[in-house]
């Protein structure tokens, strides 16, 4: 019984430790990339297209649409980062139906890594959009006194992002494991289905929150009518 797939080591050489988190992540990367390549190597540009192409188009355009609805003006620019976040987290939880698999998102290391990526991406997108000065001046809004609170908000929300995903995914796996030892029949299936739902919701929440943070950062340079207040509230 282990809390995180990090603890499941396959190979170690000094500081280099090949644990289950990394291995399953590679597996997911392989599945996503290979699946995408298989479908997109023969894409139809006409009106007739395959079912798989239809599925991928629905997923990609759905992600693009969601990003647009959050308030980002050029959704296509953010599809790569935000869409990958969603697909990775969603696929990680989807594969929990495979026996022996442990979702890499159940590792706090993974969620911290993803949260750090968001933490770095937000200012990068913000600076790219409005310039360094405009981005930094957003920390002084509405007054200079708010600077430490803004910084704390920035750090805490990153921490919350990581902890929320980790908690949800880890708990799902843990509950499943515990239930398997207590009632091996029926209940694990129901909770597994519930875990799938939770996983999808968490994937959505994670990527949408990242989109909201990026939107808040890119809108700081806008005039007042565009709204300058960043949405920092986060669901549990």
């Amino acid at each position: 019984m282990h809390l995180s797939p990090d603890e499941l080591l396959f190979w170690q050489y000094g500081a280099f430790r090949l644990n289950a988190t990394i291995v399953f992540t590679w597996g997911l990367m392989l599945v996503l990339s290979l699946g995408s390549w298989l479908v997109t190597r023969r894409l139809s540009r006409g009106l007739e297209r395959s079912r798989w192409q239809n599925l991928l188009e629905i997923i990609v355009t759905g992600i693009e649409q969601q990003i647009g609805e959050v308030g980002l003006d050029e959704p296509r620019k953010y599809v790569g980062f935000l869409g990958s976040l969603f697909l990775f987290v969603a696929t990680a939880s989807l594969f929990t139906i495979v026996p022996g698999y442990e979702p890499p998102t159940g590792s706090l290391s993974t969620t911290v890594a993803l949260a750090l990526c968001v933490f770095v991406a937000v200012p990068l997108f913000g600076i790219e959009s409005g310039g360094l000065r405009a981005y930094l001046s957003a920390y002084l809004q509405p007054t200079v006194i708010m600077l430490p609170f803004n910084i704390i908000s920035e750090l805490s929300r990153t921490l919350a992002l990581a902890a929320r995903l980790f908690g949800n995914m880890m708990s799902g796996t843990m509950i499943l494991a515990i239930l398997l030892t207590i009632t091996p029949f029926i209940f694990p299936i129901a909770l597994s289905a519930l875990g799938l739902l939770t996983g999808m919701v968490q994937a959505y929440i994670f990527s949408i929150l990242a989109a909201v943070y990026i939107a808040a950062a890119t809108r700081t340079r806008r005039p007042p009518d565009g709204g300058t207040t960043a949405a920092t509230g986060a669901p549990a």
């Binding site: 988190t21 590679w26 990367m29 990958s84 590792s107 290391s109 890594a113």
Partner: peptide, 20 residues
């Protein structure tokens, strides 16, 4: 709970996944 090597590896993995 946090293994910083894994964190770095996962961040790298994620960036590679984004590129892929």
């Amino acid at each position: 709970l946090i293994d910083w090597f894994t964190v770095g590896a996962q961040a790298l993995n994620f960036l590679i996944l984004v590129w892929l």
